[in-house]
Design a protein around this nucleic acid. Sequence first.
RNA 1: GCCCCCGUAGCUCAGCGGAUAGAGCACCGGCCUCCGGAGCCGGUGGCGCAGGUUCGAGUCCUGCCGGGGGCGCCA
Length: 578
Amino acid sequence: MPQWVMPDTSGVLRQRLQAAFDTIAPDADPVLRPSERADFQSNGALALAKRVGRLPRQVADEVVDAASLDDLCASVEVSGQGFINLTLSEEFIADQLAAMGADERLGVDVVPAPQTMVIDYSSPNVAKEMHVGHLRTTVLGDALARILGFLGHAVLRENHIGDWGTPFGMLIERLIDVGGAADAESFSVRDLNAFYAEARQHFDSDPAFGERCRRRVVLLQGGDAETLRLWRIFVAESLRHIDEVYGMLGVLLTDEDVVGESFYNPWLPVVVDELAARGLLVEDDGAQCVFPDGFTNRQGDPLPLIVRKSDGGYGYPATDLACVRDRTGRRGATTLLYVVGAEQALHLRMVFAVAAMAGYLPETSAAVHVGFGLVLGPDGKKLASRVGGSERLADLLTEAVDRATASIAGRPSDLNAGQRAAVARTLGIGAVKYADLSTERMRDYVFDWDRMLAFEGNTGPYLQYAHARIRSIFRRAEMPPPARGARPSVGEPPERALALQLLEFPAAIAATAESYSPSKLCTYLFDLATTFTTFYEACRVLVDDVAVRTARLALCDLTARTLALGLSLLGMEAPEQM
RNA sequence: GCCCCCGUAGCUCAGCGGAUAGAGCACCGGCCUCCGGAGCCGGUGGCGCAGGUUCGAGUCCUGCCGGGGGCGCCA
């Protein structure tokens, strides 16, 4: 079991205040917040005063009298209309920091009630190269997988690749047409991209071809051996490509995490049967549909979720339902996260609604659409193509590394060529990931090379640089970081500001996880880095006085460790030097 | 027509119902014998509009305006 962990700083304060508020009313919220006027402020007296019909300041005074805060606070003052301003004592701050330093987890406790979370993300299509449209789900989902896993949840990554359905009818028929069925192994994925486009073109322009494709899909879904053989060629070649991109991007996903659409094929009839058994299926225009309450179409008529198409094939809703069934059933998931673009909100709401009707989503589990906005080009339009040359994700990542290489080319460095190349990869990939993660996920964001690669502002390179720079202090000091748990100094205002910012780390992680918004962690890390540079500018670290030096080095070490851990939870590397 | 998301400084973004709305970039003005100037300090500048709830609204509710997305056999 986890060893001792440090008490959460604001949590301790809240408990003490809660006890004091309880003496006035049993369920009053202390409303504890970070404050600009003190370290924290409690605003609970204002609301409570209204309830008990007394003056806010009077209530605040009573709370202060009733609270035992002497061991935590240097001063507790009532001000304004009834705010309680709390200034922590230096001893308490230093104690907390020392505890944080002694903790490998930097004060972030494991959640008391771990969930089994399936995170559905990335989900590229087989037989097409990964493109920029896959960037956000992959980066966001991977960060969430890391963060939630760190908090102690059982995280099951699922890469729901598009390896089934109509496109394969097209591809396989096209393959047969061009006479490549026998030596199909010779296809490379680059060919496949063009191949897909050709197949698509025929599909759109030639009705007879389209009809053959639909029949081929039925063969595929029916398990026809030759069809499956051809299909596997596409899948294998695609996975090679996908893994390569994941390698460049540095994400956790492996082939082990692939649970593609094809996996659910055997379960689709089962889903239909079970829906039918519950009396949920309605035939409409030859299609088997479920009409969940509260969904209507343009005409105001009930909107169906089409589980089985009129041609007998299964559409993606059937797969998605089978997916929910599998995740809550076989995999025992209590939380289902879908890191999927915002435009699929309606579809997912309907799937969740029907899944609940079908009993696939019990009350004890939750399905959450972790949606996100678009990545926009410089023209303000959806970034689908032509980003500095290409829409291929692999090319975009290569360009990121090239640009990072150029940006560090002229700078002095002690590193050799190989190390510098590694740094360029770290910076370039980090820049792309951070640009994505640092924007609130529901917002669209503009993809801008210059901005994301800048060493100024809220960027990946800035944070990575901040980390490397702190690490350099220890090389310069010619001494190792102080013993973990060394007591930092917090007497000077910049030291104190840094200390308080460091102690907010667990709260930042909690807020990030709660809202599934890595941007909150990004904001925190950026604030930490700027708070650090202010400290570093004002307080000389490498002074002769060993006590001061050690105490400040402890602050440096904690800052670097927090940055490194935070970045790693975002899926980013933090180089020691650059 | 209906539903969802977004609207905060010139630009990119933070803001968990609390005090005077914060950063970054850009711009202007300072700081370099000093630990990586890829820096620090300061300044200009803003909550789309109108109601409502509340002791208190950028935050919650309603309506409008603007932008994006979605609305039956593609995924």
